[in-house]
Nucleic acid binder design. Structure first.
Length: 533
RNA sequence: GCCCCCGUCGUUCAAUGGAUAGGACGGAGGUUUCCUAAACCUUAAAUCCAAGUUCGACUCUUGGCGGGGGCACCA
């Protein structure tokens, strides 16, 4: 960890307790690494920023002569430094030694338990694109946190009881012409298909709409699981059933008792309310309706309580854009139920574009492109990479024609091609036999060093994307690394007639290290590495 | 009406308050006796508008304008 070492040098040189930030300048004229600590200290010390920078720089310079070639102060007060090749050559050995564990941290998470809930789409039909976006996001975020030493539980919460299941059952009955159709019923081919295939069951259970709905929900959930496991490779540890794990185990009642004990409940108009306004919600929310039914909010609180009882003090809940108005309420419930570290991430909508025009989608009307269909069209690697490239909070466009037409030019292939090129070189070299005495000091051209410097950033990148809960940072890095590697490939030769055998051996180690890092990245992203392209 | 998210090259996305705003696709031009040209190199092109905060603003604050979503004793 080059970066954290640099930070430590500065901690010794600076008395004040400020956060020391090290960043990598775009242009190498400002160093391999740079810091603005001197600028931050101007206010505290009341001195000129250049003078402060000079003072710190000379202090750091004294104790790091074996680490940096050069430490420089530039106006208005940045301190820039250039690494010695030796540092990178040592890091290379570290990569080769740790292999698939390179970049792993067991300090960050310290094996603390965190539950990540994602998708949790109602089993009333196929998964939508927004579900898929949240799915890839949750899956990869889980991978990242696991890589950082957290013990992660990936949870899909299934709302398999209650009103929307009854509505689903009624929708089936209406499709079988047993009852008149109503405005809010589910529509679409998948509803018709199910109703046709199960007409006997619909007639058998007649007015028991919950039962019919649950039968349909069971089938839909099975289809969803198939898409997750087979098509999208999104992994879950647990499918928590609202019916079996929450309601029947009385977690709703237990949650209600805890709400009442908090002293923040009151009766009004025959219903029982909870003061969510105390948690900066715009209005208070109902727990029990005047007819005596628990609300969805109360059931969700029960779910948080169940999570807490199973030992999770931390939970990350990834929800779709239709849950904006729900965040404050859930955070209030989490706090009351004792889930101390509760984070909610809302993924933004996905707009599907075909021939330059947006396709309007509505799940209830059955007018939408299913997630599984999209993967079938563009492939899992393209789909994963494309969704993950975008930060979850941005609204994104998915142009179907573009994804298909230019599928071979999709950025994911750029990264995969780099990994394939690594493998290709290593295959070629096998004819040549190995020599044990590798001299990594020979790796000293601009391209060698640039590539090594990029490789050394991996552990910093993975740490940053874990801290910010943002897989996109890792995706961007994979593109940067691929670019650096392709550039190296064009300019430097590894095996060939004109290349010195010792240099070839050293370069092969560099290629091995690059391959290791690509494998680590793509495993985390869930993207395949082809043998050939 | 109230609340939340987003406005960046032609298009689609980047940029912990830092230095010359970055990439991809598309446009223009170039590179192959040698490890895969799905690559590399060169080039044109952008911060919605207006104030404010400061050494320094795409980023923070306020007010506009534009796009999306949410505002149930539904889930």
């Amino acid at each position: 960890m080059i970066k954290s070492n640099i930070i430590n040098y500065f901690k010794k040189a600076i008395k004040e307790k400020i956060k020391i930030e090290i960043f990598i300048p775009e242009n190498e004229q400002f160093g391999h690494y740079s810091t603005n600590v001197a600028l931050k200290l101007t206010k505290i010390r009341g001195e000129n920023s250049i003078q402060i920078a000079e003072k710190i720089a000379s202090d750091v310079r004294r104790r790091t002569s074996d680490v940096f070639n050069k430490i420089e102060v530039t106006p208005p007060g940045f301190i820039n430094f250039w690494l010695k090749p030796k540092v990178l050559q040592n890091e290379l050995k570290e990569i080769l030694k740790k292999k698939k564990n390179y970049g792993r941290s067991n300090v960050k998470g310290q094996m603390s338990k965190v539950q990540i809930e994602f998708i949790s789409a109602n089993p009333t039909g196929p998964l939508t694109l927004a579900n898929g976006r949240g799915g890839f996001f949750g899956d990869v975020l889980s991978n990242i946190l696991e890589f950082q030493g957290y013990k992660v539980e990936r949870e899909y919460y299934v709302n398999d009881t209650g009103n929307q299941i009854i509505t689903l059952g009624k929708s089936m009955a209406a499709t079988a012409n047993l009852i008149p159709r109503e405005e809010n019923f589910y529509q679409g081919d998948y509803i018709k298909d199910w109703a046709n295939k199960n007409s006997a069951a619909i007639k058998k259970y007649k007015n028991n709409y919950l039962k019919i709905g649950q039968l349909a929900a069971k089938n839909f959930l099975a289809s969803i699981k198939k898409v997750l496991i087979k098509d999208s490779k999104i992994r879950f540890d647990r499918f928590t059933s609202e019916d079996r794990h929450i309601q029947k185990k009385n977690f709703t009642k237990k949650a209600l008792a805890i709400f009442e004990k908090s002293g923040l409940t009151y009766k009004k108009d025959g219903a029982l309310w909870f003061k969510t306004t105390q948690f900066s919600d715009d209005k208070d929310r109902v727990l029990i309706t005047k007819d005596g039914f628990p609300t969805y909010f109360l059931a969700d609180a029960g779910h948080y309580l169940e999570t807490k009882k199973r030992g999770f003090g931390q939970k990350i809940n990834i929800m779709g854009p239709d849950h904006y108005g729900y965040v404050k309420r859930i955070q209030a419930a989490a706090e009351i139920m004792g889930v101390k570290n509760s984070k909610i991430i809302i993924t933004q909508a996905v707009r599907l574009i075909r021939k330059g025009e947006e396709i309007k989608m509505s799940k209830r009307k059955g007018e939408f492109i299913a997630f599984g269909d999209l993967i079938a069209e563009v492939g899992i690697d393209v789909a994963r990479f494309f969704f993950l490239m975008h930060s979850p909070e941005t609204h994104m466009d998915f142009d179907l024609e573009l994804a298909k037409e230019r599928s071979m030019k999709n950025p994911v292939y750029y990264v995969q091609y780099a990994a394939v090129r690594c493998d290709s070189i290593l295959q070629k070299s096998k004819v040549k036999g190995q020599r044990p005495d590798i001299n990594s000091n020979l790796l000293n051209t601009k391209e060698d060093l640039n590539l090594m410097r990029m490789l050394a950033r991996f552990s910093e990148i993975i740490e940053e994307s874990a801290e910010k809960y943002n897989p996109q940072i890792l995706v961007r890095y994979s593109l940067d690394l691929a670019r650096e590697f392709h550039n190296f490939y064009e300019k430097e030769r590894v095996v060939g007639e004109g290349v010195d055998i010792d240099l070839t051996m050293a370069r092969l180690e560099l290629i091995k290290a690059t391959q290791i890092v690509f494998e680590n990245i793509l495993n985390i992203l869930g993207v395949n590495i082809p043998k050939k392209m």
